[in-house]
Design a protein around this nucleic acid. Sequence first.
DNA 1: ATTTGTGAATTACTTCACAGCA
DNA 2: TGCTGTGAAGTAATTCACAAAT
Lengths: 219, 219
Amino acid sequence: MPIPKNKIPDAAVRRLPVYLRALEESMSECAVVTSSADLSARTGFTSEQIRKDLAYFGAFGTRGVGYDTALLARRIRKILGLSRGAKIILVGVGNLGTAFARYNATFPKDVRLAAAFDSDPEKIGHGVGGLVIQPADEMYDHIHREQTKVAVLAVPSEHAQGVAEGLEKAGIEAILNFTPVKLRSGCYVQNIDLSMELQSLVYYTTYAQRDEMKGKAEG
Amino acid sequence: MPIPKNKIPDAAVRRLPVYLRALEESMSECAVVTSSADLSARTGFTSEQIRKDLAYFGAFGTRGVGYDTALLARRIRKILGLSRGAKIILVGVGNLGTAFARYNATFPKDVRLAAAFDSDPEKIGHGVGGLVIQPADEMYDHIHREQTKVAVLAVPSEHAQGVAEGLEKAGIEAILNFTPVKLRSGCYVQNIDLSMELQSLVYYTTYAQRDEMKGKAEG
DNA sequence: ATTTGTGAATTACTTCACAGCA
DNA sequence: TGCTGTGAAGTAATTCACAAAT
């Protein structure tokens, strides 16, 4: 028995922010209670799935009634750790990092970037998405000082593994990895590989399927 | 029997581009043959997984030897449909659309955007990532004319469902959906919800776990 | 000898169906 | 009655283990 291993599936955790958004929508319509059926209509997930996901974390509803909208939203925020004011940093302000920083400025403020770092001296001091780009060698200090636990990694592929190791050593626990490198890391890593997404999409297109048929037959 | 239902898991399809990248790396090192073990080392997926994924599409290797690097790469490109010159369009050139267009300019050219559309007259004619932004009302014509099958959707949430329906009607078959809306669509949809990704990451941080413990107990 | 390809076993996730409560 | 919470059933994906091929 190495680790007790939380029985909560990652897939369930990843749906919580979606439920939270639905709850906020519901609250903006002044609904005081909601139900798994209502959340289902808003999110597209089945009501059973929603009930099961929520039940992983406790019994938040009232049988025969539903869920207190505001209370459930608060609970989810707490489970996710959003009420903690988690600090998030951006590592690597190239093409993608810049794009992300700009877009991030439109996010809910709980998950807004707190700082951005790059190793290129040309970039230091410049602004991006409301942040001043700081030199990479101040990054580890910053992580310690601010007790940063989450990093968005957008460095060139060849540096990804090395930087990830440094981040882990400095205290980072979760990484949003935009590089196409599968990181070996003790951190929890969520990968977003945009080029891969587009390439696999093409498969689901009629031409690709026709190809596939031939693939089996022909040499 | 409504649809024969391809037995190939989406997860396997989504790994093909990763294998392809590994093969290209391998080829750049002048390797003529490779093996599931070598691809495993390069991608981080297990060798069994790689063999099983490839076997869904046919028997591409030679027992006792491995895979012909160049041939397998060609096969994967064909399966994905990358050799077809698939046309891809960007719909919505706001914050995120702009970010994506710029970043996309760095992608392998098979999956480079062919056009970008927006409904804001202010934006029409301006350039982004090497493309000229075109008016939204020319989009459907363009899709027909160019036989476009793939679209990247980055419009405001409130328009997402409506635009997706229009895209489907015009002939789009696969959508990369950056909006947080779960689309009801006959198209194959791949969702990327960046705000959700960041929010769920915070959960995997020590503070969040401490919260979760309390969640169960306290009212 | 070595490495693929694959049925069988395992594990993870989802859906079902209904008991438990307001 | 109405909706949650949950064990049981079902489905999907991954890993195991080995026969097949060269």
